[in-house]
Amino acid sequence: MGLKPEEIKSPLAAFIAEHACARTVRITALERFGSGAVQENWRVDAEIDGKAEVFVMRASSASEGVAESMSRVHEFALLAAAHAARIAVPEPLWLGSDPGLIGRQFYIARFVPGVAAAHRLVRDPALGDALVARLGEELARIHALRPGHPALAFLEMPQPTPARANVARIRVFLDRHPTPHPALEWVLRWLELHEPPCRELKLAHRDYRTGNYLVERGELRAILDWEFSAWSDPHEDLGWFCARCWRFGSNEREAGGIGSREAFYQGYERAAGRNIERAAVPYWEVMAHARWASMAIQQGVRHLSGRDRSLELALTARIAPELELEALHLIRAIEDAPRGASWRS
């Protein structure tokens, strides 16, 4: 069950007053955003010593949520590091690490206006290659952060490689799940056998896709939802962004359902100053479908467990079959591709 506005209003006002060093804080509106199946996002309208301000509160879910998502404490640190690196993110302000305050861990960030809803963005005719080039550029900025960053020591190094770590995590989940998933297992085995070499580790967002960024009047305003970030192969984010499951029906626009793949790649390459290993991206698109399938199955578990009962979560679980099928389809396409189109040849 979600947080109750009437119960959290007054502890939240006290929390903001303490951190903003304000005499009086009045919360004038508290409204949950529709998105955020894993975390709860709230818009907080407040009057701080009489001055109106808008914030976002991001709170952990009632249950443990999805296994690989990080705590609010780490997410806050990550957001701070990204903000310091001038990556477009909502500026993180204050961390409520004591779950006794409102019943969950949470943090407050500055509100950024814009639209995140994927179904609206992919249908907006004003959006296209310019936006995906900009998204490529922003991704390159994220990938400029590397292991050894002093504020990000809590992020684990993938063992032995990013691809193997993904496969191992999904298998751990499947081993605990009551129903066997042979198609997903087949995809994981293929991923294990066809791993392209990982040449470098960068900060990867690992949920960089349409639906997780804010657009206002055609401009990129902020990258959201950092809870899955980790050190990884930068091609993981490129494959995730272009994967068919994140085009929201706008399938012919391969970069996030918004623009062309080439515009996205070129925006990235210009900012990164290095080339994308184009042949490695389809491998990471297979990975994207495998990982999203396992997450979709986990959303169904959350619903069935009774801790986060929700029609949205239950329906998300029903997406898993088409994600498995798409992964099988992609593997066929990769294997049938002429030699020379593969990183292995």
Partner: peptide
Amino acid sequence: VADIRAGRLDGNREIARHLFATAVDAVRES
């Protein structure tokens, strides 16, 4: 699943076809 993980079915086209057909049946519903 145990056979797939152990690599005993690597490249087995019959199994690939079986998994594809099973997935198609599931997606016909979902």
